[in-house]
């Protein structure tokens, strides 16, 4: 591969890693088109990682080639530079692999520890049918509804069940099922690992945040579309308010859902 192509690939890596978060992690874009943002970001990551791998791999390949080829006295400069770049590429591979390994290990250790505690909850759970879905019902005064990606289960507590109407409960469960169906936990993990691969760009941290928010909004939108067909446009917002009336964490999501419902009503 020509040196120019290698430079182009490295520039693609730097450009995409820097530009994608800068373009995509805009609040209005994430709020209005969370799915588009997520898909473009995952594509950008794939392009970026492929460019980097091919570029570094080629540099290593060029360096290795000089070890098996006869080098004459007058062409020593090119092979020397190639060898040095080859070593630099190996070092870069090693650094990225190390950072990825550490980040993945941390992510896995945290997730495993918490999953284990959550799995213990399931021993006291009973199945409950909500609409066409089955969730695991746990007796508890705490209001909790959550998707447990490790077991592909949705966990619901009796207290939260009692706080919601049937339509609200169906919408809320659909929200959680969307997280599971669309592998949002894995996508959030990828967003975190991307920070490890591109540590020099603070934009990637911002993109990890946008990934986290986008997955939440996608689940809201899918649940909203599902509930609108059956019951009406405000069910998800109503469910959030009924479930967590004093929790400020839901304020922005409720406002966004109301705003979108009002806009749809006008149209």
């Amino acid at each position: 591969m020509e040196p120019l192509a290698i430079v182009a690939l490295l520039l693609t890596y730097v450009g995409v890693t820097f530009l994608a978060p800068w373009v995509l992690a805009r609040p209005v874009l994430v709020s209005e088109h969370p799915r588009l943002v997520l898909n473009l970001w995952m594509s950008a990551l794939l392009i970026s990682l492929t460019s980097l791998t091919v570029a570094l791999g080629t540099l290593v390949g060029r360096a290795l080639r000089h070890h098996v080829e006869h080098i004459t006295n007058h062409d020593w400069l090119g092979p020397t530079i190639d060898t040095m770049l080859g070593w630099a590429a190996i070092a870069a591979f090693g650094l990225i692999a190390f950072r990825l390994g550490v980040a993945a290990q941390e992510l896995r250790a945290d997730t495993n520890a918490r999953n284990l505690r959550l799995l213990m909850l399931l021993t006291g759970a009973v199945p409950l049918t909500v609409g066409t879905r089955t969730v695991l019902l746990v007796e508890s005064p705490l209001r909790v509804l959550g998707a447990l990606p490790a077991r592909h289960h949705v966990l619901l507590t009796t207290s939260l069940r009692d706080a919601l109407t049937v339509p609200q409960l169906e919408a809320a469960v659909e929200h959680e099922q969307t997280h599971l169906r669309e592998h949002h936990a894995a996508l959030r993990g990828i967003g975190q690992l991307a920070v490890a691969v591109a540590p020099v760009f603070s934009a990637s941290t911002r993109m990890a945040q946008a990934t986290r928010i986008a997955t939440e909004l996608i689940a809201d939108d899918v649940a909203c579309a599902f509930a609108t067909k059956k019951y009406g446009p405000d069910i998800v917002a109503d469910a959030l308010l009924a479930a967590f009336p004093k929790n400020p964490d839901i304020t922005e999501r409720v406002a966004r859902l109301r705003k979108r419902a009002a806009r749809r009503a006008v149209h």
């Binding site: 447990l148 990606p149 936990a185 959030r188 945040q209 479930a243 929790n247 964490d249 999501r253 966004r256």
Partner: peptide, 20 residues
């Protein structure tokens, strides 16, 4: 970050909420 349990309440941080 660990995404062990994706909660209906969202578990968005204050920074996430500012973003939104």
């Amino acid at each position: 970050r660990t995404a062990a349990l994706l909660l209906f309440a969202g578990a968005l941080s204050e920074e996430d909420r500012q973003f939104l």
